[in-house]
Write a protein that binds this DNA or RNA. Structure first.
Lengths: 110, 110
DNA sequence: ACAAGAATTCTTGTATTATCGAATTATGAG
DNA sequence: CTCATAATTCGATAATACAAGAATTCTTGT
């Protein structure tokens, strides 16, 4: 992943409401959630949620599709995995013994 | 990790210069690098580098110590691991089969 | 075609963050 | 003590992001 893409993804996640929305979408899985559903669950104005979801989409972390009159968002797991790998490389590079992320992940079998 | 801490860490990394500085610090390992060294390597004004390093430190991703007349920064691997686990939980929660980060990490034995 | 539902876009105001250079603090050398 | 070095802090300004509401687009049902 290129640096500028990573920066855009990171800054997309670096906001409370967007992080919360992203969480909901992760839990929802591939079937996703409509913009209005997310706004209601998080008690955020629909107009605000639109803005946040657009930011997440620019960051590549979610994708949208129209279903009838609703617009459904879902997580781009590929991109999220890419971001995690990017960060993990930076973290482990040269010092895998210090970071030890993989071991933790292995234990939890996440 | 609490949400607000994660947000602060993420927004600390969500900037090109800081991401580059963080990379250098990861490569440098526990012995770290002085503020001036980083500024020189990245061709960034010392005053700006100070600002960026302070931001990274507020985000908990690096720590600083004085060594003679230099101030040396090094990565907080604990915190970085914490951030990665936080993101991995969000990513995998409910859908480990889709994300598959751990498998990748396992293969690479990072 | 018309009305209502679901989202988004646009506009305006505010707040946070980035950038640059000058001034300031802390340290080591003579 | 005084000087030079290494960083940071402080000003001011510019750029970017956040927030709230009105107006607009797109879709479905009648």
């Amino acid at each position: 992943m290129r640096d500028d893409l990573a920066v855009e993804s990171l800054s997309a996640l670096a906001q409370e409401d967007r992080l919360a929305a992203f969480r909901l979408l992760v839990k929802a899985g591939p079937k996703g959630l409509a913009s209005g559903e997310i706004a209601e669950k998080l008690a955020i104005a629909p107009t605000r949620m639109s803005f946040h979801l657009a930011t997440l989409e620019r960051g590549g972390l979610v994708v949208s599709r129209r279903e009838g009159r609703r617009i459904v968002y879902s997580v781009s797991f590929d991109r999220m995995r890419g971001l995690l790998e990017f960060l993990t490389e930076d973290c482990c590079a040269g010092h895998p013994e210090i970071c030890g992320v993989s071991r933790r992940l292995n234990e939890e079998d996440c």
